[in-house]
Computed example of a mutant assay.
Amino acid sequence: MEWNVYLSGEIHTDWREQIIAGCKERNLTVTFTSAVTDHDASDAAGDVLGDEANGFWRDHKSAKVNAIRIKNLIEKCDIAVIRFGDKYKQWNAAFDAGFCAALGKPYITLHGDDIIHPLKEVDGSAMAWAQTPEQVVELLSYVISR
């Protein structure tokens, strides 16, 4: 069976590449999907629908266009990995975790121990909490190979 793993969250570090490389090294049969990780492209996703003088409406349109991709990819995934970074608040990642929980999709959270408290509800619905991409690779290896 080929697993479909959705990678959600923080876009400013190479955690996605580390997980993908680790799974490749272990010869795991995994397809990875993700939201658009180019920040400027994501912010401009709705611009084709017309200019907006108010930033709220530009963000609103782009969020809906991006949600077409995100909603479909999460619905099709076997498991999601949801990363919360140190530098920015990833409200979108929290939303993705809630969507996974509502759909009954298993997910792994990936974050440092310094944000355990604000993520207690998100972690409460997760199947596992990892602190490093290497731990995620170990978890995926166990789940996929056993």
Rank of each mutant, 00 (worst) to 15 (best):
G98H: 00
P118G: 10
W15S: 13
I20C: 04
K120E: 14
D96W: 04
Q90D: 13
E25F: 07
W3I: 06
I68W: 01
D113L: 08
F84Q: 02
D113T: 05
N72G: 07
K120R: 13
A102D: 11
S34F: 05
I74T: 04
G104H: 12
F84D: 05
E17Y: 04
K105R: 14
L73D: 07
I79F: 02
E75N: 03
Y107P: 06
L49K: 03
W15R: 09
F56R: 14
S42E: 10
A63P: 06
D114L: 06
A44E: 04
R58I: 02
W57H: 07
R26K: 15
Y88K: 11
V30C: 14
K89Q: 07
F56Q: 11
I20D: 02
A94G: 09
L7T: 07
A63T: 08
R69I: 08
V36L: 13
Q18S: 07
K120D: 13
D96E: 15
S62C: 08
A101L: 05
S42F: 04
C23N: 07
R69Q: 11
I115L: 06
E52W: 08
K89M: 10
I74C: 02
C23F: 09
F95H: 02
D47R: 05
Y6H: 09
L49Y: 14
K89Y: 12
D86P: 03
D51K: 14
C77W: 01
F84K: 03
G112I: 12
I11Q: 12
G9I: 02
D14Y: 10
R58K: 15
A44F: 05
F95I: 15
N4Q: 10
L49G: 03
I74Y: 01
E75K: 04
H60M: 11
K71A: 00
D78H: 10
V48C: 06
N27P: 05
V5W: 05
C77R: 01
T31Y: 15
C77H: 01
D43A: 14
R16K: 12
I79N: 01
Y107K: 01
W3N: 06
S42C: 13
R58A: 13
I82G: 00
E10K: 07
S34T: 14
E75L: 01
Y88Q: 12
A35Y: 12
A53D: 11
D40I: 11
T109N: 07
L28A: 10
N27L: 11
T37M: 13
E10Q: 07
E17G: 08
D86K: 12
N92D: 11
Y107A: 03
P118C: 09
T109H: 05
E121T: 14
V5Q: 06
W91Q: 00
T29K: 15
E17I: 02
W15L: 06
E121W: 07
E25H: 14
A67E: 10
P118T: 13
D38V: 09
G22T: 02
H111S: 11
L103F: 10
K64D: 03
D59V: 01
G55T: 12
D59R: 11
A94T: 01
C23M: 09
K87C: 05
D96N: 11
L28H: 06
A41D: 03
A35R: 15
P106M: 07
D47L: 12
N66T: 02
L110I: 06
A94Q: 03
W57Q: 04
D86G: 10
R58S: 11
G98F: 00
W91V: 00
L103N: 03
Y88P: 00
I82E: 00
Q90G: 04
F56Y: 15
L73A: 09
A35N: 14
